[in-house]
Amino acid sequence: MVLEQLVNAVSYSMLLFLLAVGLSVTLGLLRVVNLTHGSYYLLGGYVGLSVVRWTHNFLLATGAGAATTAALAALMFWGLLRRFLGQESAQVLITFGSLFIVADGCLAIWGGQTYTIPPPPGLSSSLLLAGAHIPTYLLLLIAVGATGAAAVYWVFERTRVGAMVRAAVDDRELAEACGVDVRALSFGVFTLGGAIAGLAGVLGGPVIGVYPGADLAVLLLALVIVVVGGAGSMLGALLGSLVIGFVTTYGSLYFPEIASGIVYLAMVLVILFRPQGLVPARGLDQT
């Protein structure tokens, strides 16, 4: 029981991290909440679902889901957002409108049912571990999530490009004066963030499912994570995901009556004591 809940909480946290990391970094860079971020999750999930049905290949489905949402994010940035950099209300409107367009498009193609993506063959059973039944798929989720988190963290914290992104989050003007092409960087980060959210949609398909409204549900969760963790920071996204993952899992176990609100309670507590989030990017600390 203890182990089962722990695996649930950790795997859910990893999924949340994949979902929130792109939102956090694009918020840090563009100073705008990308309200379409949840739509990448939804679209990724639907595309993954169709690919699994046609090909029975889960790996291919994750690739297809991520590629589709990367393309959508790239199109949104290059076609629309690029022209409105610095105009925050215009950007909010664009991303909010895109949310409805994607949601209606998905409804037209995939209909209104709730689907669960079948996990890859061989990972649909459970493992008896120290007396606990652990679904093997959750272990995969943990492995993929942890690997992804480590890779993203490494790029962000240990490479020159990562340093450029952090510099642009700290001080956009100054980064440009140092020869950093912040617009090109934002395009890359926006696209990559979209790809990772799409990947999360496919990976979350067997656990959370794919259904109309999932876009808003996960957008809200991702926003809570960014608020709890602090915008623009990798460590913040990771910590925020762990906090929300554990609070959700153990909250619904011990306080089922208030399970749906407990995440927000956690958020309010963090805001009360650390309004800037647990570990915000340092440049955003003062603002």
């Binding site: 020159r160 340093a163 952090r166 510099a167 989050v169 001080d171 100054l174 950093v180 340092r282």
Partner: peptide, 15 residues
Amino acid sequence: RVFPSLSVAENLGIA
């Protein structure tokens, strides 16, 4: 105006 999230070496390196 240094980049607070970056180390000294990174501040120089990105420029």
